[in-house]
Each structure stands twice: as structure tokens, then as C-alpha cells.
């Protein structure tokens, strides 16, 4: 019972992060049908930038929470610019190219970003200086920390903000129209180049925030961390139905929970043959099952509906 509650708590935390990253994949896919494989690397850059800011300000005597907030703000800004530049430089020139071309470019961009990060931050694991005084709370034999609470709370806030943006604002309306029929959207006066750029910028901002969460949760970072995180978030997006915002949120949460429960019970299930460090396999089992039995995902739209 303790394990169950504990793993649920861990799963929700992890799931909140996956959901934020998954939103970046799904927004871009929903609007231009591209799987931006470099998105995981944008998240990694977000973590790294936050790390640099925090480390360089840690000794300055500023209040730790302010340092953390600055780290978050700078890394969000950097990632927004990065997302914008990726679209502008790598994907826009390929807008009318065959589908495989931008996909391969995306993989290329992710390799480029990894190498840039390796040059800047080195090839070793880097440790985050703890900024928050970690407090541990007890819940029926399981425990959770204030870091976890902040992650879940902040992620929920971002998602509510995104839903508001997409459904209640002018730019959100333009985004939905562009996703459904770009040509007609432009007839209505929507500058679709701007909308596409916005999708990248917003997705990257969410990714940066997720990156900071990962950094402060695990307290380590590495230039290759974006690969696995990106793949899992992509799985979450597919699980929810890629292109669907609510789907990405639900898919992220679900995947986090599946993974945490899997990690908690894999020892029992296999007679301790496999340990909890095998938790990564669950995401891929989920991916394979979804692709085999319900490729449109849980909330999937019929593909015929797509513009």
C-alpha cells in the first residue's frame, strides 16, 4: 500500500513534466504536421541554461528563491528564442518539401544541439546546487517533498494558461484555425507564418519550464538527457493522440503513473530479476502498444479530420 501511494505521487510528478514537454510536440504537430524531434534537446538546453544561471548567482547573496526564479526566466527566454530560430532556420525553408525531409532535419537539429551543449557544458553529469530547502511531508506511509508540490502546481498553472490561450484569445483562435485549415485561415487574415512561429515559441517555453523542473527534481543534468526525456514525452503525446492538447496532458500524466508503478512493482513481478532501473522500458512498451492497437491515441482525432 505504501509503495502504491508513493509510486502514484512520483508518477504524478513525473507525469506533470512529461505533459509539459508533450505539449510542445503536440502543438507543432497539430499545426504543421511535423514531429519536432529536436524538442527534447530544447528542454535539455533549458535545464542547462537554468543550471548556469543558478550556479553563477548562487554565491551572490541573493535570496535562493529569486535565484531560482531568475534561472527559470532566463532559461525560458533562451528556449523561446531557440524554438523560434529552429522554425525559422531549419523548418520554414522546408515547409513544402516532402514530409520525410523536415523529419530528418529535426533529427539533425537534435544532434547539433546535443553537440553544442556538450561543447558548452561538457560531457559529464553536472549537479544542481539545491536552492530550495527540501521539506519532506508524510502521507500514509509515503512521502513527498515541497519540490514535487511546486512542480505539480506550476505545471497545472501552465496548462490552465495554455488552455485559456488557445480557447479564449485571438492568437489561440488563429492557432486552432490554422491547425484545421491553413489556407482558409490565411483567407480570414491569419498570418500563418506567425502562428507557426508562435507554436514553436510557446512549446519551447513550456519545455524550458519542464527542463528546470527536471533539473531541480533529479538535481543532475547531462547533455544527452533530452533524448530519453523527449522520447518519453513524444510517447505521451502519441498516447493522448498527437495534435490534441488535452491528449498530451492526459497522456503525460498517464505515462508518468504507468512508469512509476512499473518501477515500483517490476521487482515483485519478475521475482527481482529486473530492478527499478528498468523503468524506461515501460514508456516504450506503451508506445508499441498504442501504435499497434490505437495509433490515433486515446483522444485521437480521425486522421481524415486533419487539415
Amino acid at each position: 500500500m505504501d509503495t502504491l501511494i508513493q509510486q502514484l505521487i512520483n508518477g504524478v510528478t513525473l507525469g506533470a513534466v512529461y505533459a509539459l514537454v508533450a505539449l510542445g510536440y503536440t502543438m507543432v504537430y497539430g499545426i504543421i504536421g511535423l514531429i519536432n524531434f529536436a524538442h527534447g534537446e530544447v528542454v535539455m538546453i533549458g535545464t542547462m541554461v537554468a543550471f548556469t544561471v543558478i550556479v553563477s548567482l548562487a554565491g551572490s547573496g541573493m535570496p535562493p528563491l529569486l535565484v531560482l526564479a531568475l534561472g527559470l526566466a532566463v532559461s525560458t527566454l533562451v528556449c523561446m528564442v531557440l524554438g523560434w530560430a529552429l522554425e525559422r532556420v531549419a523548418y520554414r525553408p522546408l515547409r513544402h518539401a516532402p514530409r520525410l525531409t523536415p523529419l530528418i532535419t529535426a533529427i539533425g537539429m537534435s544532434i547539433v544541439l546535443q553537440n553544442v551543449a556538450m561543447i558548452i557544458w561538457g560531457r559529464n553529469y553536472i549537479t544542481f546546487p539545491p536552492m530550495i530547502n527540501k521539506q519532506i511531508y508524510d502521507l500514509g506511509g509515503a512521502s513527498f517533498t515541497n519540490v514535487q508540490v511546486s512542480i505539480v502546481f506550476l505545471a497545472a498553472l501552465m496548462m490552465i494558461g495554455l488552455i485559456y490561450l488557445v480557447h479564449r484569445t485571438r492568437i489561440g483562435m488563429a492557432m486552432r484555425a490554422t491547425a484545421q485549415n491553413p489556407q482558409v485561415a490565411s483567407l480570414m487574415g491569419v498570418d500563418i507564418n506567425r502562428v507557426i512561429a508562435m507554436a514553436f515559441v510557446i512549446g519551447s517555453a513550456l519545455g524550458a519550464i519542464a527542463g528546470c523542473m527536471v533539473g531541480s527534481y533529479y538535481e543532475i543534468a547531462h547533455y544527452q538527457m533530452g533524448f530519453m526525456l523527449g522520447l518519453k514525452a513524444f510517447t505521451a503525446a502519441v498516447l493522448g493522440g498527437i495534435g490534441n492538447l488535452a491528449g498530451a496532458m492526459a497522456g503525460g500524466l498517464l505515462l508518468g503513473i504507468i512508469e512509476a508503478l512499473g518501477a515500483g512493482y517490476i521487482g515483485d513481478l519478475t521475482g527481482d530479476f529486473l530492478g527499478s532501473h528498468y523503468q524506461d522500458i515501460f514508456a516504450f512498451i506503451v508506445l508499441i502498444i498504442v501504435l499497434m492497437f490505437r495509433p490515433s491515441g486515446l483522444f485521437g482525432e480521425r486522421t481524415g479530420d486533419r487539415a
Binding site: A177, Q180, N181, S186, L187, M188, G189
Partner: peptide, 22 residues
């Protein structure tokens, strides 16, 4: 294209081109 509507030009496209999920 996106500046035409402000000039007062509106096209009703062949096949209607409505936004199906709005």
C-alpha cells in the same frame, strides 16, 4: 494572402473550407 481580407476581398472557396472542429 492574409492581407487581402483587410482590403475587402472575401473568397468562399470551392468545397466551402469551413473549420470542422470549431
Amino acid at each position: 494572402a492574409h492581407q487581402l481580407v483587410a482590403e475587402g476581398i472575401a473568397l468562399v472557396p470551392e468545397g466551402r473550407g469551413i473549420f470542422p472542429r470549431m
